[in-house]
């Protein structure tokens, strides 16, 4: 895997980056093992007679599947694209440890540490609403709808920071085509997983669960719009929205619904989670726009993650530097429809 990355982006991947990543993965295994130890401990205390046997068994069972996933399922086959050529990639370690994913906690480091129990397989997405026939698609069948592509996209968070991420995925348009929406489908709504058992953040009512996002149909069908199933050539880590998430690079990051379980085609504009939470702060469109400020964060400039302590800010570009989407909003007052 690591060799692969080096081959693809020799100038962008430093050998020094490899170590922290391994350390990071080791840490995850350690956390998993520690968790197994805890569970074993609980078993030991309840079943005193089987204490020792229980501990050994649980530990062994917990370690095996993790090792298996690592060996067989991690790598993805995909074709490269011209998107993001010349961009300096954000380190894998930063992309996978600095996340906004409130289902696993509100701290940026929570998703990486609290998502180890989350199971992205088996997975299926149910397709509902204004479609010829409601149906369900498994993650395996989804991956067959179109060849996987690598798209290097900038991601601009509404909080004023940004990354450059090499996503692997397929155009959302290919799923829409398969779903066969009817003429009544004006918007598409994404509903994320909210399993309180494996997503500890869901137990706290910080947001109105489940997480809901949406796009207008033309936005959803836009060639830039991606259903990501991986990053850095690997299966999507849990903390980045495994097994499948939305990526709309010209919009603020919160539009990217993670761990999608349901897609609904609807006639009316969906009431999305952040719009419900703060309608004066977050809009349905949420297009990156340096001219429309947020009550908390400066939107005319941004901090690039990984640039270092003394790098300063970079100018934020309209539509995050993807002007090709502009025609979809021709004639719209983007101050009003922010």
């Amino acid at each position: 895997m690591i060799l692969d990355n080096n081959k693809r982006n020799p100038s962008q991947i430093q050998p020094s980056e490899i170590t922290p990543r391994e350390v990071f993965e080791d840490r995850r295994h350690f956390i998993k093992a520690a968790g197994a130890g805890l569970i074993a401990g609980a078993i030991a205390s309840t079943q005193a007679t089987k204490a020792i046997a229980g501990e050994i068994k649980t530990d062994a069972n917990a370690k095996k599947p993790a090792a298996k996933t690592g060996a067989t399922q991690k790598t993805l086959t995909f074709k490269k694209t011209a998107y993001g050529e010349g961009e300096k990639l954000t380190k894998f370690e930063d992309v996978t440890t600095y996340n906004n994913y409130y289902e696993f906690g509100t701290d940026k480091s929570d998703p990486a540490t609290h998502s180890t129990l989350f199971k992205p397989r088996p997975w299926s997405i149910s397709i509902e609403g204004a479609v010829k026939k409601a149906k369900t698609i498994s993650i395996e069948d989804l991956l067959k709808l179109a060849p996987l592509e690598e798209r290097i996209y900038r991601m601009r968070c509404v909080e004023g920071w940004s990354m450059v991420i090499p996503w692997v995925g397929l155009p959302l348009a290919s799923l829409i085509k398969w779903a066969e929406p009817t003429g009544n489908a004006k918007y598409i709504e994404f509903i994320s997983a909210n399993d309180a058992l494996t997503m500890p953040g869901v137990r706290v009512p910080v947001l109105d669960w489940p997480y809901v996002e949406g796009l207008r149909m033309d936005e959803a069908n836009h060639p830039l719009t991606l259903l990501a199933v991986g990053l850095y050539g690997e299966v999507l880590p849990n903390q980045n929205g495994a097994p499948v998430r939305l990526v709309t690079p010209w919009k603020y990051g919160f539009k990217g619904a993670k761990a999608i379980v349901k897609i609904r085609f609807v006639e009316k504009m969906p009431v999305t989670t952040w719009v419900k939470t703060g309608p004066s702060e977050y809009g349905f469109y949420a297009n990156v726009n340096p001219f429309v400020d947020h009550p908390r964060w400066t939107q005319s400039s941004e901090k690039r993650i990984g640039a270092g302590l003394f790098a300063g800010r970079i100018k934020t570009e309209m539509f995050n530097g993807y002007p090709e989407v502009g025609q979809m909003y021709a004639g719209m007052d983007l101050r009003k429809y922010f």
Partner: peptide
């Protein structure tokens, strides 16, 4: 800072 361990967003961290 010396150990480059101020998280992914060092400015915000400081």
């Amino acid at each position: 800072g010396v150990n480059d361990d101020l998280t992914a967003n060092p400015v915000e961290f400081v």
